[in-house]
C-alpha cells in the first residue's frame, strides 16, 4: 500500500503503556481516504488510549511501533501539529475550560489550522456566519457559543459541541471516541447526520462505539474489536451485529486477522 493509493493512516506494532502498565500490546491498522472504521471492544480494553495516543496525549507512553499519517511519522509530532495536519479527536469526555468562551475556543482553533494551511484567517463576520451555519446543523442553542467551553453543558451538549468543532475545522481524519454514548435518539441522529455530511472520498473516520445502533446511521466499511491489547477481530458491518447479539465473550484475545 502506498500513499498514492490513498493511504491515510498506517499503524504497525503499536505498543502503549500508561504508568508502567501496558495497555496496547500490538496494534496494526490501516485506514485509507474515504473509509470509515468502527472500533468496538469491552470497557477498559484501551479504545480511548488508542484514540488519545493518536491525538498526541503525552501521558501515554509509546513503547514500540509506528504510526504514519499522510506519509509523515505521526508519533514525533506535538498534538497541535497533528491537529493542523488534519487529525481530529472527538473526546469521550470533553474538557471544561472555565473562563474561555466556546466561540473564542473555536476561533483560536480555526485560525491555527488555517494559518497552517496557508489560508487567511476568517474575518469576524465570515467566522460567525460559518459557526452559526454549523450550529444550526447541530441543532445547538446559540447561547452555548458564549458560555465557557463545555462548562455546565449537558452530556449531550458536550457531544454535539465536539461535532460542531469537527465541522468547523474540517479535518481529514476524525476519531470519534464514544460520541454516541449518552445521547438521546434525536441527538444521535443529529450527530450521525453531522458525521455523514462530512464523509467524502478525501476524508476518513475512526469511530469508537459500544453500540451497533450508531452504525445503523453511520455505515462503517470495517469493524474492529479491540481486546487484550490488540485488534482481536476485524470484519465488515455484520461483525457489529454479531457482537450486539453475542457480546465479547466468544472472542479470544488475539484471534482474527487484520485487513
Amino acid at each position: 500500500m502506498n500513499i498514492a493509493a490513498g493511504e491515510m493512516l498506517a499503524i504497525t506494532g503499536l505498543q502503549v503503556a500508561v504508568e508502567g502498565k501496558t495497555i496496547l500490546n500490538s496494534i496494526d491498522l490501516k485506514v485509507r481516504a474515504g473509509e470509515l472504521h468502527a472500533i468496538m471492544g469491552p470497557n477498559g480494553s484501551g479504545k480511548s488510549t488508542f484514540a488519545q495516543v493518536l491525538a498526541g496525549r503525552e501521558t501515554y507512553e509509546v513503547l514500540q511501533g509506528s504510526a504514519r499519517f499522510l506519509g509523515q511519522d505521526l508519533l514525533d509530532l506535538p498534538p497541535e501539529e497533528r491537529a493542523r495536519r488534519g487529525l481530529f479527536l472527538a473526546f469521550q469526555y470533553p474538557v471544561e475550560i472555565p473562563g474561555v468562551s466556546n466561540i473564542y475556543f473555536l476561533k483560536a482553533a480555526l485560525n491555527a489550522v488555517r494559518r497552517h494551511r496557508g489560508v487567511d484567517e476568517l474575518d469576524a463576520m465570515d467566522f460567525i456566519s460559518l459557526v452559526k451555519e454549523k450550529l444550526a446543523a447541530m441543532q445547538m442553542n446559540e447561547d452555548l457559543l458564549y458560555r465557557s467551553v463545555n462548562e455546565g453543558f449537558s452530556g449531550g451538549e458536550k457531544k454535539r459541541n465536539e461535532i460542531l468543532q469537527m465541522m468547523v475545522l474540517e479535518p481529514v481524519l476524525t476519531i470519534l471516541d464514544e460520541t454516541d454514548s449518552g445521547l438521546d435518539i434525536d441527538a444521535l441522529k443529529v450527530v450521525a447526520d453531522g458525521v455523514n455530511s462530512m464523509r467524502s472520498p478525501e476524508r476518513a473516520f475512526i469511530v469508537v462505539t459500544h453500540y451497533q445502533r450508531l452504525l445503523n446511521y453511520i455505515e462503517p466499511d470495517y469493524v474492529h474489536v479491540l481486546s487484550g491489547g490488540r485488534i482481536a477481530r476485524s470484519g465488515g458491518p455484520e461483525l457489529a451485529i454479531e457482537l450486539e447479539q453475542r457480546g465479547y465473550g466468544w472472542l479470544e484475545p488475539g484471534e482474527g486477522a487484520v485487513p
Binding site: P79, A83, V100, A112
Partner: peptide
C-alpha cells in the same frame, strides 16, 4: 489544568498560547 491544555493543543492551538489563554481565563472572573 493539563487536560485543558491538551484539549487546546488537540485543536491546533500551540502549547504557549494555550497556557497563556488558560492563565488569562483564570483571572477572567
Amino acid at each position: 489544568d493539563e487536560e485543558a491544555l491538551f484539549y487546546f493543543r488537540s485543536r491546533g492551538v500551540d502549547a504557549t498560547m494555550a497556557r497563556n489563554l488558560l492563565v488569562y481565563a483564570f483571572a477572567a472572573d
